[in-house]
């Protein structure tokens, strides 16, 4: 499959941005900086989805992840952290154990990827232009039950988050 030079440059640029920002998410000592690099990772990932002909997923990525999730995490941090944000995001004592487990996972991935015949499974067709109408039709026909279950899940998560984060004293006042 022939790719243009722009796609190649875009892929490597976005891949380096994603990996660098993700590494900084893990290694930043200030949790607020971590969340900022997380937003950068999400936006670069939206660009990567554009190189994969998934324009609707790219839009959803920017809206849901870079918009909603990052803001929600920042709000959560502001509610629970102390005023001094330095050294709020440190490593625990399992640094080398964790590194060993991750090395094992990478080795397993490499072994299984080496045993997979990637060239055989690639299809010849290209993705059709404009994916939104296909995704919308499929979500309302073939995948309508998962779609409704996802809606129910969001409702339950909304109610559950309110119930969990609610202050006990407020509840006692409301009960009077």
């Amino acid at each position: 499959m022939e790719t243009s030079i722009y796609t190649v440059v875009a892929f490597y640029g976005l891949a380096l941005t994603i990996l660098g920002a993700a590494t900084l998410v893990v290694f930043a000592r200030n949790i607020v900086h971590s969340v900022l690099f997380l937003a950068l990772t999400f936006i670069a990932m939206a660009g990567l989805f554009l190189t994969l002909d998934a324009d609707f997923i790219a839009a959803v990525q920017v809206l849901v992840y870079a918009g909603a999730v990052c803001i929600m995490v920042v709000f959560g941090i502001m509610l629970i952290q102390r005023a001094d944000m330095k050294a709020t995001n440190l490593f625990n004592r399992q640094l080398f154990t964790g590194g060993g487990v991750v090395a094992l996972v990478v080795a397993l991935c490499a072994v299984f990827a080496g045993r997979t015949a990637w060239a055989e499974m690639v299809a010849a067709e290209a993705v059709p232009e404009g994916t939104v109408q296909f995704i919308g039709a499929l979500l309302m026909s073939k995948y309508v039950i998962p779609f409704e279950v996802a809606a129910l899940l969001l409702l339950v998560a909304l109610i559950g988050a309110i119930v969990l984060a609610r202050d006990e004293e407020v509840k006692a006042d409301a009960g009077d």
Binding site: V73, F75, L164
Partner: peptide, 9 residues
Amino acid sequence: AAEVGVGLA
């Protein structure tokens, strides 16, 4: 998204 909401709560 649901997981982040409930997890933060």
